[in-house]
Amino acid sequence: MKALTWQGNENVAVTDVPDPQIQEPTDAIIQVTSTAICGSDLHLYGVLGPYLKPGDVLGHEPMGIVQEVGSEVSNLSVGDRVVVPFNISCGHCWMCERKLFAQCETTQVRSEGKGASLFGYTSLYGSVPGGQAEFLRVPQAQFGPIKIPDGTPDEQFLYLSDVLPTAWQAVAYADVPQGGSVAVFGLGPIGQMCVRIAKHLGAERVIGIDSVPERLALAARYGAETLDLSTVEDVSATLLDLVDGRGPDSTIDAVGMEAHGGAPGSKIAEIGQKATGLLPDSIAQKITDKVAIDRLDAMYGALKGVRRGGTVSLSGVYGGEVDPMPMMEMFDRGIQLRMGQAHVRRWIDDVLPLVQDPADPLGALDLATHRLPLAEAPGAYEMFRDKTDGCIKVVLAP
Rank of each mutant, 00 (worst) to 15 (best):
G120I: 09
D234A: 12
H343G: 04
D253L: 05
P353C: 08
I207M: 06
V312Y: 11
P280W: 10
Q31W: 00
L240A: 08
Y121V: 03
T33S: 15
D56W: 06
H200L: 12
G46P: 00
R221H: 13
F157S: 11
A302V: 05
L374F: 09
Q336E: 14
E10V: 02
V212K: 13
L164M: 12
E24G: 06
W94E: 15
L242S: 06
S71F: 05
Q67L: 14
T231W: 02
L124E: 10
V235L: 02
C104Q: 07
G208I: 03
A220Y: 00
L164W: 04
A254T: 08
P85L: 12
D244M: 03
E204F: 14
R308M: 09
Q142I: 00
E155S: 12
V163S: 05
S315H: 01
P54I: 09
F86A: 13
S250D: 10
R196C: 04
E376Q: 15
F143H: 15
D56E: 14
L136W: 03
R371T: 10
D360L: 06
F119K: 02
M1H: 10
T369F: 04
D366I: 02
A13F: 04
W347Q: 00
L227D: 00
Y222S: 13
D249W: 01
L118R: 07
Q285A: 07
Q132Y: 01
P264E: 08
Y125V: 02
H370C: 09
I65V: 15
S181W: 01
T33F: 04
P18H: 00
G245R: 10
M330F: 13
R110T: 15
K393H: 11
V317S: 06
I148H: 07
E155A: 13
L337A: 07
A368Y: 10
R308F: 01
F86C: 14
M383D: 10
L337Y: 15
L374P: 10
Q142P: 00
P153K: 11
H343N: 15
V255Q: 05
T311Q: 13
V32E: 04
R307Q: 15
D357K: 05
P54N: 08
A167C: 07
P248S: 04
L365S: 05
I283T: 14
L354R: 04
M95C: 12
P153C: 08
P353V: 05
A359M: 11
M328E: 14
H370R: 03
I348V: 15
V32I: 15
S161I: 07
Q142R: 09
P177W: 04
T26D: 12
P189D: 11
D154Q: 07
Q132C: 09
G79N: 08
F143I: 00
R371V: 12
T33C: 07
L278A: 14
K274V: 02
I146M: 07
I146S: 06
V73T: 10
A133V: 08
G223I: 01
T231I: 00
R371L: 06
V351M: 06
G265V: 07
A263W: 05
C38W: 03
L365A: 03
G120H: 09
G70V: 11
L337Q: 04
T166P: 10
F185I: 07
R81V: 10
P145A: 02
R98I: 03
S40E: 06
S89G: 13
M328I: 14
M328W: 03
G320R: 00
P25K: 04
